[in-house]
Amino acid sequence: MADEPVVIDNHRVLGVVPGKPVAGDRKVLGEEETVMVWPHLLVRHAVAALVVLLIVMVLALLFDAPLREIANPTITPNPEKAPWYFAALQELLAHFHPLVAGVLVPGAIVLGLMALPYLDRNPQLVPQARRVARTVFTIFLVVWIGLTLVGFAFRGPNWSWVWPWDEWHGEL
């Protein structure tokens, strides 16, 4: 023991003992540990909700919803565009018989998605153990997003190819 007492913040240190701090070990929490939903999850959800609302409110400030001329059964606009989320289907309709592009393909997609958990019986969750499922799904997503982009932005009058920077025909 030193002769001079050690003083920290006007408090004299009497001694140092080996071992754990009084509050116990600082626990390293694993991913599987559970936490209370309030406040941990709810706070995050509230922030997420506010961010989404902010995005919508800013979009609504910047861009007005479209309103074309009043409906007229005797004039079909050229090009006639479906809303963007059906642009992929419209692109398919220009190439295949409507029974295929308008009924069989969308029907197969919806039924296939519904059946997915019953077709993919591999219980693994780690990405490396489910390469086939991930590859198939990714290909489907890429093809569908590609078709949507083509139908939305790259098609002009008479459904002919246009470059979106030359002529803009996308409709929301």
């Binding site: 079909t76 606009p77 090009p79 006639e80 419209q90 309709l93 008479n158 459904w159 002919s160």
Partner: peptide, 11 residues
């Protein structure tokens, strides 16, 4: 000009 019917929607 072509003397044909041409659909604007899907060609």
């Amino acid at each position: 000009s072509s003397g044909q019917f041409e659909c604007p929607c899907h060609g």
